[in-house]
Design a protein around this nucleic acid. Structure first.
Lengths: 213, 213
DNA sequence: CAAAAAATAATGGGTAACCCTTATTTTAAT
DNA sequence: ATTAAAATAAGGGTTACCCATTATTTTTTG
């Protein structure tokens, strides 16, 4: 029997490219969406065997779609992410919510087929190029070496809040936030220059804000 | 006679999607690359009538390719950019170096055909959704309201240099850089809070660094 | 329950990024 | 050649982000 697949990505060309490619390789593409909410509804109604999703999409992102379907309704769909994100911690979170395949948009067409074959056989596929680009230790430390409060503060810093604003939002003294900032800088091995924490948090913004914790 | 086209994008799926789409619409795709330098060499050797290029690519970006071909060798190829960048000033620079079409990756397949038809007829196509998302005044001011020195300094700020480092690099006093920073903040209407200039320069990094000036 | 870890907070000090104003020199434009 | 604009620089001031140390309270964990 043919394998049914849903494809979703906010770039129409990728949706079409993927759909055509899958069709020419014997898969049955039953839906192709460029919007998160539309993809979500089609997933509920059509129950495809596989869904290949982008992470960033209008209205609803890939994480939200998978989380909602894997917790409430017990979806039987196998989820694969197709994304530009190489960060180890984003892959990590994808694995945690039950995503079975993870491909980079820069990956070759062969890799798409290898990934599909692997998940269909009941396995997983979490592409290469992920631990290469950045060192995996560095990426892991954000979630592993920091305490919950530190991560909460870090996310606010990434949203351009200053110490005073963060203190007001969390109902604690500014000195407390200052201490946390200092601890984060020490734990992460950042330089002692001004704004190193701000710059670093903005660079790791995707990773910090896509991760829940 | 069939129109010859070269397609280049660092995401293989987009290259394939675009090539297939163009072929099925009667165009002749004579090259499809995922690397800037490869695209550049094929453009010289194959001289396609049209080139559809991504901006960000490994080894050589879209701007570099078009500039090199439009200045040195007198290329007869019509250039179209297919990019994620909505910034008015990036479109502006593309127009200045002779790019005849500009599409966003989120644009529909219809738009691709409309763009092609327009440039083939000798016209231009600079898609919608560009002045919508951000207000165009705001985007224009970066290059129009700032002096050459101010822009030079702004680009160094976007590269995380502090006042002292910039002063040393430009062989001027720190006070001079401070004055320029202050002028930039005033001209751009930024807030008087600490680091507003750093944050703003990082947010507009693509625009600042892709533009030469 | 005791020990470890985390969160809270203060005292005190350094530096960089901002503010303002004034002023000279250099460069561009009419 | 004269104005206008830009680049240069300095003095003086505020605040946010950093440092280090110490210490109490709360939470977690064995």
């Amino acid at each position: 029997m043919e394998i049914t697949i849903l494809v979703a990505d906010d770039h129409p060309l990728i949706v079409k490219g993927m759909a055509d490619f899958l069709l020419s390789n014997g898969y049955k593409v039953i839906a192709a969406e460029t919007n998160g909410i539309m993809a979500y509804h089609k997933l509920i109604n059509l129950k495809p065997q596989i869904a290949i999703l982008d992470i960033e999409m209008p209205d609803m992102n890939g994480f939200q779609i998978v989380e909602k379907l894997n917790t409430n309704g017990h979806s039987s769909t196998i989820f694969i992410f197709n994304t530009i994100h190489k960060e180890q911690s984003i892959l990590q979170r994808a694995i945690e919510i039950g995503v079975r395949g993870y491909m980079l948009k820069e990956s070759t067409l062969d890799e798409i087929l290898i990934c599909l074959q692997s998940v269909i056989r009941g396995g997983t596929y979490f592409g290469k190029n992920l631990t290469n680009q950045y060192n995996s230790d560095h990426e892991n430390t954000i979630t592993s070496k920091l305490s919950p409060s530190e991560i909460k503060i870090l996310r606010l810093i990434a949203q351009k809040k200053n110490t005073k604003e963060i203190a007001e939002m969390l109902f604690v003294a500014e000195k407390t936030i200052e201490k946390h900032r200092s601890n984060i800088i020490r734990k992460m091995g950042l330089s002692q220059t001004k704004n190193s924490l701000l710059i670093w948090s903005l660079q790791n913004k995707d990773e910090l804000l896509l991760n829940k914790i």
